[in-house]
């Protein structure tokens, strides 16, 4: 019973994601493509929520929705009017695109078929907030303090660069 409801929600989300992904690559207008990408990301967040991994789901929304905002601003402001509508594509590009997506599909299918999923370790309670927090900040094995710090240094460098560019001489 429980399984089939999950299956129903999963297939709904998967259909939404697949449709939005196809729409994102086939549309010729960049703003629409970005918006369809947003729905793919929402679908991914929905999958995380379905797995009761609410932390990652919220991160997915907050980070990627923020990312989409940045994409919007870039697409609308920095790209000229001529490039917003992409209608001309050469055949070589088309072929390269098909090849790239096919190889991506092949890799994904290979991984799905050859991976044994550890279903018995799956819990429906979700991960407590304190566990996530201490894993992010911990220095032990399988903890992420180094990644966290490296990322913060990267962001600091970005901020310093942005201030340098934006500063009046």
């Amino acid at each position: 019973m429980e399984m089939s409801t999950n299956l129903l929600i999963f297939s709904g989300l998967a259909l939404l994601m697949a449709a939005a992904a196809i729409a994102a690559v086939t549309t010729s207008r960049i703003m629409r493509a970005v918006t369809y990408l947003l729905f793919v990301l929402f679908g991914t967040a929905g999958l995380y929520f379905m797995l009761h991994y609410t932390f990652l789901g919220a991160v997915q929304i907050i980070v990627y929705a923020g990312g989409i905002v940045v994409l919007f601003i870039f697409a609308a402001l920095l790209i000229g009017k001529g490039i917003i509508d992409v209608t001309h594509t050469s055949k070589l590009r088309y072929l390269a695109g098909v090849l790239a997506s096919m190889s991506g599909l092949a890799i994904a299918l290979y991984l799905i078929v050859n991976t044994t999923f550890i279903t018995d370790k799956f819990t429906t309670d979700g991960v407590p907030m304190t566990v996530v927090g201490s894993a992010l900040m911990g220095t032990a094995k399988h903890n992420y303090v180094l990644t966290f710090e490296v990322l913060s240094i990267l962001l600091l460098a970005c901020m310093v660069g942005a201030i340098m560019i934006a500063r009046k001489k």
Binding site: L38, T54, F55, A58, V59, I61, V69, A76
Partner: peptide, 21 residues
Amino acid sequence: FNIGIFFIMAASSFGVLGILL
């Protein structure tokens, strides 16, 4: 959720997308 406040932040953050669009 166990991360309720964080979810509120996330959900309210994509309203700006609608305004930009």
